[in-house]
């Protein structure tokens, strides 16, 4: 699996992502600076977390209109796998590659903690290693993770099996506490209509080593490596 990571001014999770990708694929990803219009040949393109352009205007809005995102959109249309994590998810929705929007957390606070993540649809390369209805432990770290879409869009996402992950209680967590940001229908990650683009708020790249408190993120990368060669 050949991978590429897109880097903007303000991106800050690209090294963690590079480590997780190299662990799964055996080779380091190509790091692509936002001004480079051309992407290297890759089986998986990752838009990592951080605060691209300082979250000016709206989180992800500036990066969504950069030249490199046009190349990412072209690649997605050709069927290349694209993963957006946290700010990467915000960028993909602002760019129109995924529906909906990410609003400020309902608590108005930055949330940084482990959450439970239920695998809803494991029928894609991203989640094939998990099997459905498993609850994973992964960290979130964001201020604007409150997924929103109108009811029609949400119904369509559910009808088309495009909800990838939902927040879920982690061992005994209270029912009103497990959703860290107020997202509608507890949505934590969604696919595009072809299942080759995934956006998610939790950080699988920060759950790949025992010293990070969880290794549940490994499956996402190993599943992709198995599917994409």
């Amino acid at each position: 699996m050949k991978t590429a990571i897109v880097v903007f001014p303000g991106t800050n999770r690209e090294r963690d992502m590079a480590e997780a990708l190299e662990m799964a694929s055996g080779r380091p990803p190509a790091m692509v600076w936002h001004r480079d219009g051309d992407l290297p040949d890759a089986d998986l393109i990752v838009v990592p977390g951080g605060f691209s352009y300082g979250d000016y205007l709206r989180a992800g809005a500036m990066a969504a209109h950069s030249p490199v995102l046009r190349s990412v959109a072209d690649a997605a249309r050709r069927g290349v796998a694209v993963l957006g994590v946290c700010n990467g998810f915000q960028i993909l929705v602002e760019a129109g590659l995924l529906p909906g929007a990410l609003l400020p957390n309902a608590s108005l606070k930055f949330v940084c903690r482990d959450i439970g993540l239920r695998v809803v649809n494991s029928g894609t390369a991203f989640a094939a290693a998990y099997g459905s209805d498993r609850t994973l432990r992964m960290p979130v770290a964001h201020h604007d993770g409150n997924y929103f879409a109108d009811d029609g869009t949400l119904d369509r996402l559910e009808d088309e099996d495009r909800v990838a992950f939902r927040y879920a209680p982690l061992g005994g967590e209270a029912a009103d506490r497990f959703n860290p940001n107020g997202s509608v229908r507890n949505i934590a990650g969604i696919y595009n209509e072809h299942g080759n683009v995934l956006g998610m708020m939790p950080h699988p790249e920060n759950a790949v080593r025992p010293d990070q408190g969880s290794t549940d993120g490994r499956g996402l990368f190993s599943g992709l490596a198995a599917a994409l060669g």
Binding site: L57, R58, A61, H65, V93, E94, P99, G100, A101, L103, F148, A149, D150
Partner: peptide, 9 residues
């Protein structure tokens, strides 16, 4: 339409 507003929200 293109930048200043996110017409989803």
């Amino acid at each position: 339409e293109k930048l200043l507003a996110n017409t989803v929200i």
